[in-house]
Design a protein around this nucleic acid. Structure first.
Lengths: 152, 152
DNA sequence: AGAAATCCTAGTAAAATGCTGGGGATTATA
DNA sequence: TATAATCCCCAGCATTTTACTAGGATTTCT
């Protein structure tokens, strides 16, 4: 039941992006340096977030990323699902069709997995990005290196 | 955020054990055959459940396993934590001591992980084994092979 | 004694994770 | 128009984790 680095790094990156992309597009390198994440790896995470419609990219010099929606309309759940895939703890779809419900008790545990899934989703879907940005500002008011230079 | 086979098999196995161990100790081979799990692998799962104090073992011929507590006193959370370790999605203990809170925003995400952790634990801690046994009986009343022979 | 069990430890193939690297396409800016 | 700063795409690869399998020792009932 562990979240991979995709989810961990990606959420941090998106909070960072939300915080610094108000005035202009933020390039990967500046998020990466602030957050201590490899640029190449972060690239791949941003691709996932883009595919999910959470960020928009602007190509070319002085390009970068911006949020595709307002921060108050992006939930932690949106972000984590974009990065990790479904958050359900066990996939038991196509269980009936393939094996005809082989183990009788599996249906019982299915109910358990559904409950866990629901509770996770409820929790992450009611936490919105703007709240986290606010907290981030409160915890670290200065904002490490506004408009940080990249190719250093 | 996936549960491993340890958690999936192990919970099924313990529901099975709870159901069939009322009159006598249940050997691994009979749980394994009913649930379609490798005996050798199940052995290891039972060792984890024993270490956690959820089951007791009886060695020697006509031995096997029984619950260490009543089924209504064992929660799904107890079982899953015994098998999977902590269910928290991210471990950020020893974060301050080692890296001195390297990334400023990590503290923000820490709050997120805590919330997820709480909701998972709340959910699994209020589902008790006896409820699942009841459901199992309702879904599969006959009980596949009462006192099933093993070395067949 | 013999069979039926649990116990303990080690090995191991396959999959997933967490990156790194090369090179191309696009676009602002000098 | 050149150049540099970006995003974009895909491939490779080392490490870790998972999900077992295997061998053998120990205990205890019959």
């Amino acid at each position: 039941m562990k979240l991979s680095t995709k989810g961990r790094y990606g959420l941090r990156a998106l909070i960072d992006l939300a915080r610094y992309s108000e005035s202009e597009a933020v390039p990967i390198c500046s998020i990466a340096s602030r957050q201590g994440i490899s640029e190449r790896y972060l690239e791949q995470l941003m691709a996932l977030l883009k595919k999910a419609g959470l960020v928009k990219s602007i190509r070319g010099a002085s390009g970068g990323y911006v949020l595709a929606r307002k921060a108050e309309e992006i939930s932690v759940g949106d972000v984590l699902r974009a990065l990790e895939g479904s958050l359900e703890p066990v996939k038991c779809a196509a269980f009936y069709s393939e094996e005809g419900c082989a183990a009788s008790d599996s249906c019982v545990t299915k109910y358990v997995w559904q409950k866990i899934n629901e509770s996770i989703n409820e929790t992450v879907d009611k936490m919105m990005l703007d709240e986290l940005v606010k907290e981030s500002k409160a915890l670290n008011p200065c904002g490490s290196f506004e408009g940080s230079v990249c190719g250093s």
